[in-house]
């Protein structure tokens, strides 16, 4: 990593009020994002990835109890005042929603909407905000931004609308951008397009990117590093290509093997991780993946594993008591999901 991190998360824990008692959404999470770096945060529903992003942006759900530390550009977010958080959002760190139609208003011009977004994050005169909105449209590669600013969202193509949303979110020239992928899969062509636009945005502005996703494929090729989460905890992190190419935690191995485009064999049943993710609010005492893990042994049941370096690999951490016993290839752990043995209830 070059320079001091734009985002530094230390031992972050977020507990949310739930219908059946408190939900431990994030537990003891630490990671850094360097200037201009792209990090993919990969996890399934309930992994805590979106809660992490929202907490760091000062947008934690109502009633959340937060401990630990998260600093953006050196400024502490945990415990910061509402005014402090407002100053941070949009200027230093911002969130790009991925559903362009849901965030653009149909009754205002694109330029007016970006100018309004700008004025909400800093004191700027109307004319100045207007000029900056045009510049922001230009930065995301919209041709003739002067004219585009005077148009309405419905006059834009789908791709242009996505660019406009990115322009709106990055108008304040933040150092750190979060992009949260919707849970329901976007169609792959649209998804590729959004990922391309984010990449372009990064190249133009030098902003760091945190891409929150439930699908590691595709995200990995566009990010420098990857953090895999499960049940609110760190599972594995490191350079994206290495995590995807040689996963070292049983969960990552199973997740990757179950993707149809990566399955070891082209026919026959897909490898399956047996069982289902833990019920939020009732995390097991030990490793959260223990009930589903083919390598689980005694220590896994009592102690949650902490992140530890992988011998011989730079910048890689794995949270697993048995990281030394993961076979080669790791997908072999889940390869024997024959039809008769299809795990119930997954």
């Amino acid at each position: 990593m070059n320079g001091s991190p734009v985002l530094s998360v230390r031992d972050l824990a977020v507990t949310l009020p739930g219908r059946n008692g408190p939900v431990h959404a994030v537990r003891g999470l630490s990671f850094d994002v360097g200037p201009g770096e792209a990090l993919a945060v990969v996890g399934e529903s309930g992994a805590g990835k979106s809660v992490t992003a929202r907490t760091v942006l000062g947008m934690a759900p109502f009633g959340a109890r937060i401990s630990g530390s998260a600093t953006v550009g050196g400024q502490e977010v945990v415990g910061a005042s509402a005014a402090g958080l407002r100053a941070l959002r949009g200027r230093r760190a911002t969130l790009i929603p991925q559903d362009a139609l849901a965030v653009l208003s149909p009754v205002h011009t694109v330029g007016a909407q970006i100018a309004a977004a700008l004025r909400s994050v800093r004191r700027t005169g109307r004319a100045q905000a207007r000029r900056e909105a045009v510049a922001a449209l230009g930065r995301v590669g919209i041709p003739d931004p002067e004219r585009a600013a005077r148009r309405y969202p419905h006059e834009f193509s789908g791709g242009m609308r996505q660019r406009a949303v990115i322009a709106m979110a990055t108008a304040g020239e933040p150092d750190l951008v979060f992009a949260d992928e919707p849970t329901t899969a976007l169609d792959p062509v649209t998804r590729e397009h959004v990922l391309d636009l984010l990449q372009e945005m990064r190249e133009r502005t030098g902003a760091a990117l945190v891409l929150i996703t439930h699908d590691p494929a595709g995200a990995g090729a566009r990010t420098d590093r990857m953090l895999v989460m499960y049940a609110g905890r760190h599972v594995e992190s490191g350079p994206s290509a290495e995590v995807l190419g040689a996963p070292r935690a049983p969960y990552t191995a199973g997740l990757l093997a179950s993707l149809p485009e990566r399955a070891p064999s082209a026919t026959g049943p897909l490898p399956v991780i047996p069982g289902a993710p833990p019920v939020p609010g009732r995390p097991p005492a030990g490793c959260a993946f223990e009930p589903r893990c083919p390598l689980a042994s005694d220590p896994c049941r009592s102690d949650p594993p902490d992140p530890a370096p992988v011998p011989g690999a730079r910048d890689r951490l794995v949270s697993c008591h048995r990281r030394a016993d993961v076979p080669e290839p790791p997908s072999a752990l889940f390869a024997d999901a024959a039809p008769g043995r299809e795990p119930a209830g997954a």
Partner: peptide, 29 residues
């Protein structure tokens, strides 16, 4: 989620095998 998706895919394949069902399968993937 990807880790449970594979199980449902396998289930659909098995049901078709067992029962000779015809599937019209709509997808973007």
């Amino acid at each position: 989620d990807p880790s449970v998706r594979a199980g449902v895919v396998n289930l659909l394949t098995r049901l078709q095998e067992e029962q000779g069902l015809g599937y019209l399968f709509i997808s973007h993937d």
